[in-house]
């Protein structure tokens, strides 16, 4: 202990489990992180099943793979926005630091994303075992994602949830801090960067190698890149949030 500045706060420990409690805070009302994502997943599954059944009834016997399982991913964009716009001001009333709020919310999204990924993998394994519910219909078992096995498939799904969550969270933060003009500017900037990358690939006539890179990297490799990108987005979100007034 330094004797230079013995502030009164020195003898006070930070109460433990505050981070864990932020996760619990996000789950106090189960609707956002549990009920709605489960509904979206269940609904998408049901609709996919109906479509497979209709197509099967029309006499198509081939492999039927739908993209319905991606629906909940988009919802994580909304969760990211809500966690920011609704819960952040309240977190301030609960005397939380921005860092605690951010890490805790990310952890809550991870818990929710993990649950979704688990359901995704279990469905995929079931589809694998039953030959697509016996009607060759695949909701979760999408070959390209599953090449590296169930664990990698789960990781891909999990990464995607977090990726969308952080995007939603960051854009909501930008909107709250810099207003509609700030958000528009950020989106425009992002668009310009993407167009720039496309232009670069086009002018360098690099598309074949870009395509090759995607194929060679595979779903697992792309997932790992995605994790890295999510990490960068998370850092960006935190830096935007760090000095934002409540």
């Amino acid at each position: 202990m330094t004797t230079l500045n013995p502030g009164a706060a020195m003898d006070h420990e930070v109460p433990r489990n505050r981070l864990l409690n932020v996760v619990r805070l996000q789950f106090v009302n189960t609707q956002t992180f549990v009920v709605v994502p489960a509904l979206v997943l269940g609904g998408a599954w049901l609709i996919s099943m109906l479509i497979f059944w209709v197509i099967g009834g029309a006499g198509v016997d081939g492999v039927k793979a739908g993209g319905g399982s991606q629906a909940p991913l988009w919802y994580f964009l909304a969760i990211g926005i809500q966690a920011m716009t609704m819960t952040f001001p309240f977190s301030q009333a609960m005397s939380l630091t921005r860092r605690e709020f951010f890490i805790g919310s990310l952890a809550a999204a991870a818990v929710s994303g993990f649950g979704m990924a688990l359901v995704f993998v279990l469905l995929g394994l079931f589809e694998q075992a039953t030959g697509g519910y016996g009607i060759n219909g695949y909701f979760a078992y999408l070959e390209w994602i599953w090449v590296a096995g169930p664990f990698a498939a789960g990781l891909t799904y999990f990464t995607a949830t977090l990726f969308f969550f952080t995007i939603g969270f960051w854009f909501a933060t930008i909107f709250k801090r810099f207003g509609a003009l700030g958000l528009t500017t950020a989106l425009l900037g992002l668009g310009l960067v993407l167009v720039g990358l496309v232009a670069l690939a086009t002018f360098q006539q690099a598309w074949p190698s870009v395509g090759r890179w995607f194929t060679e990297t595979g779903s697992l490799g792309l997932t790992l890149w995605g994790l890295l990108l999510t990490g960068i987005l998370a850092v960006g979100s935190y830096l935007t949030l760090r000095r934002m007034p409540a």
Binding site: A9, H12, R18, N29, T87, A93, R242
Partner: peptide, 23 residues
């Protein structure tokens, strides 16, 4: 600022406190 050791000992009740919409 960003000091959990201090903040955990404070409580601020705002006149226009916002709560999560569905809470």
């Amino acid at each position: 600022y960003e000091n959990a050791r201090v903040l955990s000992r404070l409580c601020f009740v705002r006149e226009s406190q916002k709560y999560p919409d569905d809470a």
